[in-house]
Design a binder for these strands. Structure first.
Lengths: 338, 338
DNA sequence: CTGAAAGCGCTTACAG
DNA sequence: CTGAAAGCGCTTACAG
């Protein structure tokens, strides 16, 4: 790269100190600097195509105006939508975002966070994975500002912004029940992640509250590592046998995306043969023969709120903010109207 | 944040100079440092939970090990998949990636690149937008290493990695013709972007080579700003009237995603009423009643190659590498088998 | 084998 | 109104 111009170059050119140049270019002590010098400095800066070295600035000020973002996998729509929202929100406050994917592996997350911290990010936005409790507790001990998104650990007193998962799935289940379905299957992930276990609890509690006797065969917990094949198998089991379910509740985006395919292949009519409801929306569902009823997850609110909480906690970092947002039921043709 | 430990802290604790500590921790002059001191330094570094300040290091070495990535919109699957690939490739070489979205606006791209450059990224990976020629030429004049991905400007002598767009669409069109279709419609974006105009050319040339007289009404160029409604309108026009087309070629991912919906709503049988072929694959298409034939875009190769070219050009930055990759035809049920 | 010292490009009290 | 100087946390020739 061609030699970059520095404050010093400008100072020399104008014949003043670098201090003055710094003051002018940062609009400090505005009323105490002669207009003429200021103008000249600006002119020269422009002429020399001056570009402040943010690295040097950061070293001195101990602020990088960079946020670290850890998602599960940036190539997944949930992560990338969230990233986009956070990017926009951060940008408004002059922050830039360093993103990385953890692939649901705590070790990868650890390495990633280490890298981000070495780069002196001012704070972290984290969609945690299973088994990160210790790591997060350590971060907290070290005084690193961070806020969790989407997932959190109930035993950890950390900032977080997440869905009211219990409530959202309860609402979804209740909607199915209100629509006349009683044999309701659920496909979810096999994990100890609170976010997911709360979804299961919402489903089970809703059944119980409506005096529906839960059958173990209704609940399918697929493994992350093999979810594509597991989901297909789960769907076929739920819809096969002598007592197929009348409705299927997908606990997430990804689950629905891969679960709708076997339903289509089995040539099931929706909602006549089986009703469908899912958590979280995707454009893709519009290609399915029947528009799918879903619980809208307030992603923009989640991302924005998390970013704001983080930015506020950077200077002080004392309060803990924990927020559970409501999911919104969007009824479409895949569940019988009542 | 709690006070971080620095090289100096370790040096003091051990009773040596910071220089020595730096050498040890960076594994330099290994054979010239007494094993014992080295061991002690490492031990203390660990005990004090030392984390090198990458910012300070960068200031000194003039290398940040950070790459800037400019995509159109990170929330779009093409961008996020590409980001993921680049992230992984960069990570292998100890690089971190700063991403941002241009929203197809050259001014936004300019601001983004400015920010990335201020942060002293070592190089840039750019999916450019219409109207960025001047900007890119300037970057080049400044000696900033960068490589373009997916889109490029034929008049600009820059590094790039892209699809052979002409060839890919020619292949797609030829496949339709070989399958017996002659009235072939194309839905593409209205833009001067070479990537896209080459696709149009591939379509037109294939028709010509097969002695099919092109009808202007077959080609629909939708506006980016209003693509969702434009696509729907385009599909309805192509399939309506007295002389509907027999096949539709979608020039991109997004176009197909929103174009399949009206085809479904019009209850067209595929491929009997209309054959479908598209550029680029998406999981979402699996939800469509008929599996869609597509041209596979070699995203992993593209992202990896671009990253490698960039990393190689950072130290020297003299050679120009321009690569057009081949698209691969994946035939499924949406086009008649021959 | 080890250390003193300069310097990367900034900011910012302090002095005048 | 302006400048000299210290210092952020590192690296790296150079000297011994």
């Amino acid at each position: 790269m061609a030699k970059k111009t520095s404050l010093k170059d400008i100072a020399q050119e104008v014949g003043v100190s670098t201090a003055l140049v710094s003051y002018v270019l940062n609009n400090k002590k505005e009323n105490k600097i002669s207009k003429q010098v200021a103008q000249k400095i600006r002119a020269v800066a422009k002429a020399l195509n001056y570009r402040p070295n943010q690295i040097a600035k950061s070293l001195k000020t101990n602020k990088t105006f960079t946020l670290g973002l850890v998602v599960a996998d940036i190539s997944n729509p949930f992560s990338s939508s969230l990233t986009r929202i956070i990017e926009d929100e951060a940008d408004q406050q002059q922050y830039t975002v360093l993103v990385g994917s953890s692939d649901e592996q705590p070790q990868k997350a650890r390495k990633l966070i280490e890298t981000l911290l070495n780069r002196q990010v001012d704070g972290l936005l984290i969609v945690p994975t299973e088994g990160m409790e210790k790591q997060l507790a350590d971060l907290q001990k070290q005084g690193v500002p961070f806020v969790l998104i989407d997932r959190y650990f109930p035993d950890l007193k950390t900032n977080y912004v997440a869905l009211d998962n219990y409530g959202a799935i309860y609402k979804a289940t209740q909607h199915l029940i209100d629509s006349g379905y009683r044999r309701i299957g659920m496909i979810t992930f096999q994990t100890t992640l609170y976010t997911i276990t709360e979804r299961k609890r919402g489903y089970l509690e809703a059944l119980k509250a409506n005096n529906i006797t839960f059958s173990k065969s209704w609940l399918k917990e697929v493994r992350r590592a093999t979810y594509k094949t597991d989901i297909e198998k789960a769907v076929r089991e739920l819809l096969g046998g002598k007592n197929p379910v009348e409705a299927i509740l997908f606990a997430s985006n990804t689950l629905a995306l891969f679960g709708l395919k076997p339903i289509k292949e089995l040539q099931k009519r929706v909602p006549d043969d089986v009703a469908i409801i899912t958590l979280d929306q995707a454009d893709a569902y519009d290609l399915f023969h029947t528009p799918v009823t879903y619980i809208r997850q307030p992603l923009p609110e989640m991302g924005q709120l998390a970013t704001r909480i983080l930015l506020e906690s950077i200077p002080k970092n004392n309060a803990i903010t924990q927020t559970n947002l409501d999911g919104e039921l969007v009824i479409r043709a895949s569940t019988r109207s009542t």
